[in-house]
Write a protein that binds this DNA or RNA. Structure first.
Lengths: 158, 158
DNA sequence: CCTATATATTTTGATTATCAAAATATTTGT
DNA sequence: ACAAATATTTTGATAATCAAAATATATAGG
């Protein structure tokens, strides 16, 4: 029994590392080699449609706004993002993707989908279905664990 | 059909992010809060048994030896690692875990297994088996993709 | 047995990602 | 109108990383 857990853990760790490294390599080739993984993720967080505020993006990425400010500065310099002060509330900054940013978003998305397709290639429809179900469960469990950890981290000492 | 790929991709991305964050929180609590995730991974790479050379560890972690040198310096200062020059070849440095390092290793390992156990708790034996199979497949596919990317990255321009 | 070359590691100098806390600008509640 | 709250940026610091130069040691060929 423990054997199985050990192997599942091993698999998860390796999958994790591989995904990370594959993503890294895939960016360094390709048309957007001037973006780091972190930067791609910021582009992803801004999203294709409309704009988001600095607070929204920072919350989604779980980084401080200070960190985000410098990240956005650089992505604007590189031509992927746009910054616009809100007219209704001048404190708020609305960040959106430029056309170049949208292109980067779509290409990165395609890379992800291609990877999934390659993986699912020799899965039967039934296996696919079961995997999806298992992943949903796995994901929801992780979210629970994560929320609990987050909670205990933020209330410690209070 | 594409729908399913999109969801599987989404699940994988979220699992990835959650695992990362859970690990981070779990370290920041616990007895070894003076270690970062990167440092825990270095401890893991050194391993419980015997010693490894700088080159071996750097290769395993896919970082340069320069990076590793400073990482090892700090982990020695913190009492997790030991450095010893080989007697048979004075160029070689053998790195091993101290008792404190071994304890950190075991506790981190336990954290991983507990997480897997918590996740698998309400999986049926059959689901467990299928997830494991899927993970094996996923992992082997990722390794293939990874090797190909690595190859094309290292031969580009030659 | 020397010397050139190869190997293992460390040092140096730089960059990127990150944070917490202070500063700035703007809005809102009383 | 002004104090408190909110949104963001700036500042000053640290960690992780790399490539290239420097150092130390080993090995192979004459």
């Amino acid at each position: 029994m423990k054997e199985k857990f050990v192997e599942i853990n091993q698999m998860l760790v390796e999958v994790y590392d591989d995904v990370n490294r594959i993503e890294e390599y895939s960016i360094k080739q390709g048309a957007f080699s001037d973006l780091s993984i972190t930067e791609i993720h910021t582009v992803e967080a801004v999203g294709l449609y409309g704009s988001k505020t600095m607070s929204e993006i920072a919350a989604q990425l779980e980084i401080t706004m200070g960190t985000l400010t410098t990240a956005v500065d650089k992505l604007i310099r590189k031509g992927y993002l746009e910054r616009k002060r809100s007219n209704t509330d001048r404190r708020i900054v609305n960040v959106s993707l430029t056309n170049r940013g949208k292109l980067a978003y779509r290409i990165h998305e395609k890379f992800h989908l291609d990877m999934v397709k390659a993986i699912m290639n020799d899965f039967t429809a039934q296996e696919e279905e079961i995997l999806l179900k298992a992943l949903r469960k796995l994901n929801s469990h992780l979210k629970d664990i994560y929320m609990a950890a987050r909670q205990s981290a933020s209330t410690r000492g209070s």
